[in-house]
Amino acid sequence: MLKIPQRKLPLFTASLVGIILIVVFTAYQKSLLLDMLAAPAGLSSGFITDARAILNYRYFLNENQRLEGEILKYRKDAVLLKELTQENERLKQLLSFKEQSPYALAVARIIARDPGNWSRGVVINKGFKQGIRQGNVVITGLGLVGRVFEVSANTSKIILISDMDNAVSARVQRTREEGMVSGTLLGGIVMRYLEKGSDASAGDVVLTSGLTGNYPESILIGEVREVKNEPQGLGKYCVIKPAVDLGRLEEVLVIIR
């Protein structure tokens, strides 16, 4: 049994009471104490974290590089997915048009463009082995593109309607006026040989007329953008906005029958 000497008993009792009082006091002030101790605790834990990071930097560096590689791969996959989705949409539209069309159509992809600046043409990946023949008309779901100019076994050259030497007999749908659509020097499209009293106006739809037999009738060419007088003053011509964006062609339909 613990024996406390009698002369030390008051000191012991006072110490005990003091400790109890301190504990009770700190119980009420613990949040203040916590705040006071949090700052140095934070500093020291930050120091420990930094020290650990320094010791493990090689691990973190490798992990960072690995994760960066994964992010890059996912980004590439995302771009590819978007591209495939857009291609899928385009091909669905082409297929839908092909199924509804009265013509026998062959789908072809553009693989190259005319390298010069004075003629407008593209090369497609289908040729006479796939049923393409010289003179076949080329369209998309939106309208007229051109016609087949040259055919080889597995490729064909298409001359676009924006080429200066490609003329398409055309008609303004609203007024039934006949004219000739051809390309301009910088790749635009105009409809010439309209009469001086032509009633054509901006917004009128222009279709193929089928008069020369090179192109079937009623294929959409574009829309009149503006009507101007011929320089010689003998008639009028109109600037046409083509229905098909000839600069962004990716797939086309060739009318094989």
Binding site: A112, R113, D114, S119, G121, F149, E150, K157, I159, D165
Partner: peptide, 8 residues
């Protein structure tokens, strides 16, 4: 090379 892809 230019001729192969040219129209005319």
């Amino acid at each position: 090379l230019k001729d192969v892809f040219s129209m005319r």
